[in-house]
């Protein structure tokens, strides 16, 4: 069967063991987690977990059904029409041209967020495929470290 990529939002009770219940369900049933992001939903007792996953159609359906069975899960949304963003931070040595790095970041709607004695840090937040391209483009500036965040998504 054809594998598809899906982004799933899970609204959960904000309690201590809830992330392990969700992550453990994926591990135990052999589902794949590409990225996982979690944060409290402002002014509620709830949190949102956003998971990007891959699987055939039947697996994706099972994932949402199994998640719904977890007691502290309020809502599971399998995103279709969404705005999806991911963030990346890249540390460059200052031996490279700061101006060129800045131009690159700006080309991806990003910016330089920190400059030190011997390094600078660029930040980009964009769609996952654009992040891929940006990371690829940074290689010619000998990045020291690349830290990529998980996906967040909101239904349109």
């Amino acid at each position: 069967m054809n594998e598809v990529r899906r982004v799933i939002s899970i609204v959960v009770e904000n309690e201590s063991s809830v992330l392990s219940r969700v992550a453990g369900l994926f591990a135990g049933r052999g589902y794949n987690i590409e990225t996982l992001t979690v944060a409290p939903i402002p002014s509620t007792q709830r949190s949102r977990i956003t998971i990007a996953t891959r699987g055939d159609e039947r697996t994706i359906i099972q994932i949402t059904k199994q998640l719904n069975k977890l007691i502290p899960v309020y809502e599971v949304v399998e995103h279709s029409e969404m705005v999806e963003k991911e963030m990346v931070l890249v540390k460059f040595p200052l031996s490279e041209s700061l101006a060129d790095i800045e131009v690159l970041c700006e080309a991806y709607n990003g910016t330089i967020v920190n400059v030190g004695v011997d390094m600078c840090i660029g930040m980009v937040a964009d769609e996952p495929c654009r992040i891929e391209h940006f990371i690829e483009a940074t290689t010619r500036f000998n990045p020291i470290e690349t830290v990529r965040g998980g996906v967040v998504a909101i239904e349109r």
């Binding site: 201590s16 063991s17 392990s20 219940r21 453990g24 135990g28 007691i71």
Partner: peptide, 13 residues
């Protein structure tokens, strides 16, 4: 709670 998570309907600490 960690060990029994996959073999209980729910669990509490």
């Amino acid at each position: 709670v960690g060990i029994s998570r996959p073999c209980t309907k729910h669990n509490y600490l």
